[in-house]
């Protein structure tokens, strides 16, 4: 039994213009202590996947198929009451906008104390003690626990939100673009802190981001999402050394390097697919330089290749310099 596993998950949003098929069959397996980087562009379904795991989806979202197994138990079959006990305590999440995650009218420390007391049977003093520890853990001055969110800078708020997410020592942390709103210097500090904490607490982590470079610095395993599906996944080193899916290749080619000068970047033509009416066959086929007839008719399955997984009919034939 694996620690965490997603099997055949499908999910759509019912909207006035039709069904937005945000997750179109996702399989995923994680071992305890692993860090998985989930890469993809806006609208590829990566945020929806994170929200599905915690069952925090809006009312118009419908999970139609699949299982989300945590310690072998299907989270999709849990009652709302059971889920409430699992959130924070066992699985917790850091969102992109720290400002929205903190209530402006309560002191930051008190909010975390409340969260702890709601889940654990300890005294208020013990909870306060824990908040001080958490603050120093994420690099915040514990003396500022008594301040209000507006007295914090953006970087401090994001740290506070991470402290809150870690308050109950969760086994699995889902971080959705936790540093996108921050400057690079703060981003670096927070990423390092999260790495350190993961080692210290033995936490498992899903890191959702559009920035492959961050994944390459923090994660063991990487999965690339495109059009509501995982199109490639393997160990980060392997994947970056030899990307197999044409989309992953294109993504890596289109990122300007900092230290080596490139001649000219190659961009991926076209636009990401609409999840309202995804293309037939492989969802990348309209933008793919290698696409042939079969790509327009048959959807490639995610299959084993070179120690990783890839969903492309011609992965063996596509070169990488």
């Amino acid at each position: 039994m694996s620690f965490f596993e997603i099997q055949g998950l499908r999910m759509h949003y019912a909207t006035s213009r039709g069904r937005v098929k945000a997750i179109r069959g996702v399989d995923l397996k994680m071992d305890k202590g692993q860090a998985l980087g989930l890469a993809g562009e806006s609208g590829c379904g990566k945020t929806s996947l994170g929200l599905s795991i915690l069952r925090l989806l809006p009312n118009n979202a419908h999970i139609t198929r699949g299982r989300i197994l945590f310690h072998g138990e299907d989270l999709l079959r849990k009652s709302e009451e059971e889920m409430r006990r699992i959130r924070w305590k066992y699985i917790s999440m850091v969102f992109q906008s720290a400002m929205n995650a903190l209530n402006p009218v309560y002191r930051v420390g008190d909010q975390i104390v409340e969260a702890i007391l709601a889940h654990e049977d300890i005294t208020k003093d013990e909870a306060k003690e824990r908040v001080s520890e958490l603050f120093s853990l994420v690099g915040l001055d514990p003396g500022r626990a008594g301040q209000y969110p507006h007295e914090y800078s953006g970087g401090m708020r994001q740290r506070a939100v991470i402290a809150m997410a870690l308050a109950c020592h969760p086994e699995l942390l889902i971080a959705d673009e936790p540093t996108t709103a921050l400057d690079v210097i703060h981003q670096k500090q927070i990423i390092e802190k999260m790495d350190e904490l993961r080692e210290k607490l033995g936490m498992t982590m899903i890191y959702i981001t559009h920035d492959i470079a961050i994944i390459s610095e923090t994660c063991d395993v990487m999965a690339v999402m495109y059009g509501g599906k995982i199109v490639e996944s393997s160990k980060v080193r392997d994947l970056l050394r030899r990307p197999m899916h044409p989309y992953t290749q294109g993504l890596i080619r289109s990122i300007p390097p900092l230290h080596d000068s490139v001649g000219r970047l190659t961009s991926i033509e076209g636009e990401p697919p609409s999840l309202l009416s995804p293309p037939r066959g492989c969802s990348f086929n309209p933008r793919c330089a290698y696409s042939r007839d079969i790509c327009r008719t048959s959807e490639p399955p995610l299959r084993q290749l070179n120690g990783g997984l890839v969903a492309c009919h011609f992965a063996e034939e596509i070169p990488w310099p």
Binding site: V184, I185, Q187, K188, I191, D211, I212, A213, I214, S216, E217, V236, R237, L240, R241, I252, I255, P257, L258, D260
Partner: peptide, 16 residues
């Protein structure tokens, strides 16, 4: 220097 050292790098892409 601080700015440059904070930029996340694509590891193992070119030089390994």
């Amino acid at each position: 220097r601080a700015l440059l050292s904070s930029v996340p790098r694509l590891h193992s892409l070119s030089k390994t």
